[in-house]
């Protein structure tokens, strides 16, 4: 029998009906997820990329058994997140991160001891295991300090230590580098990469395109509660029609010129932006078919014409997708 996919989400929706205030009730209805279908195989880092409010945290909480879907079904490691919580909980790890979620007044070790007990880690192994994960996240020297003295980056490491303490088969990381300074963020990404080599499947959310590109061989883009794309990084680049991007800037272009650019081989999409007197054309191009020199040839007589070629960044793809999705 082949392994079930690590994650198998079928038509999941989630509506929040929130009532705020006790006497003067204020109703709001939010459709956080509008029908998610997603399959993720085990053994790698899968990225869920999307802007704020897209529904990333909501999906992660559903997969981590902390929230029920309104409709649809979600299986993690082949087990239903609603019906099989007792089976799943010891096998999954969740890192929501942030300033909250830890007992700040006590030290890191005591935080981990508490959760080790709630996870039923064998008492004889507990201290050794705690030492091991603290070393893993590079906190062994701060183990006896109160968490309230920790920097934002150290707290994030402790969150991750707690997430892997019980050696889960799948680890959910919700925006693991949000709010971190660049150095801590880099360290955290390095740590995340190193976890995969232990054989744990990682499901990571982020709203940083570069982070998804750096960490996740495969990813899905989520926007307004829907998955708008799901592919490998290379596949996503193809999706918008070209893995190279050529940017051309000058003091305005004529329509005729744009038409002839469009007819160059391998050019799929041209976006126009104005910057004061300057205009920038961003073109998606397939490798090798049109070179910057070909573009210059089509645009004679422009003073201060600037032509640059670069690899299509995932950010370009992301913006194309999320913008198309906009109402």
């Amino acid at each position: 029998m082949s392994d079930p996919p690590a994650i198998d989400v079928r038509g999941v929706t989630r509506v929040f009906d929130s009532r705020k205030g006790f006497l003067f009730r204020e109703h709001t209805r939010t459709e956080a997820l509008r029908g998610i279908d997603l399959r993720v195989e085990s053994g790698s880092i899968f990225g869920l990329l999307g802007p704020n409010g897209a529904g990333k945290t909501t999906l992660v909480k559903i997969l981590a058994t902390l929230l029920l879907p309104t409709t649809g079904q979600a299986l993690v490691l082949g087990h239903d997140v609603v019906e099989e919580q007792p089976w799943l909980r010891p096998r999954i790890g969740l890192v929501l991160g942030g300033e909250r979620g830890l007992y700040n007044r006590i030290n890191a070790k005591d935080n981990l001891r508490y959760f080790a007990d709630l996870y039923g880690i064998p008492p004889a192994e507990r201290e050794e295991r705690i030492r091991e994960v603290l070393e893993r996240v590079d906190l062994e020297n701060a183990a006896d300090r109160r968490v309230e003295e920790y920097s934002r980056g150290m707290k994030q490491k402790l969150h991750i230590a707690r997430g892997i303490l019980h050696r889960p088969q799948i680890l959910f990381l919700d925006e693991p580098t949000i709010g971190l300074d660049p150095k801590s963020a880099r360290e955290t990404r390095k740590l995340v990469r190193s976890l995969v080599s232990d054989g744990v499947t990682i499901f990571l959310t982020t709203h940083y395109m570069f982070e998804a590109e750096e960490l996740c061989p495969e990813l899905a883009i989520i926007s307004k509660g829907r998955v708008v794309a799901r592919d490998t990084v290379a596949g996503l680049r193809q999706l918008v029609g070209g893995d190279r991007t050529i940017e051309v800037e000058a003091y305005g272009f004529e329509d005729r010129e744009i038409v002839s650019l469009r007819s160059l081989p391998g050019v799929s999409k041209i976006v126009t932006e104005e910057f004061g007197p300057r205009t920038r054309l961003t073109m998606r191009v397939r490798t090798g078919e049109t070179l910057p020199g070909d573009v210059t040839d089509v645009l004679p007589g422009h003073p201060e014409l600037a032509v640059r070629e670069r690899r299509t960044a995932l950010e370009d793809v992301y913006l194309d997708l999320v913008e198309e999705e906009a109402p």
Binding site: P90, R91, Y103, R105, I106, D110, R113, Y114, D117, L118, Y119, G120, I121, P122, P123, E125, H166, R167, P168, Q169, D198, G199, V200
Partner: peptide, 25 residues
């Protein structure tokens, strides 16, 4: 890497929660 969670004992969870409250105090 196998998940190595043992049996979750209610008494242990209660004891640990009591200990946490004491430490917070």
């Amino acid at each position: 890497m196998a998940t190595s969670t043992g049996h979750v004992s209610g008494a242990r969870a209660t004891g640990s929660s009591l200990r946490l409250s004491f430490l917070m105090f």
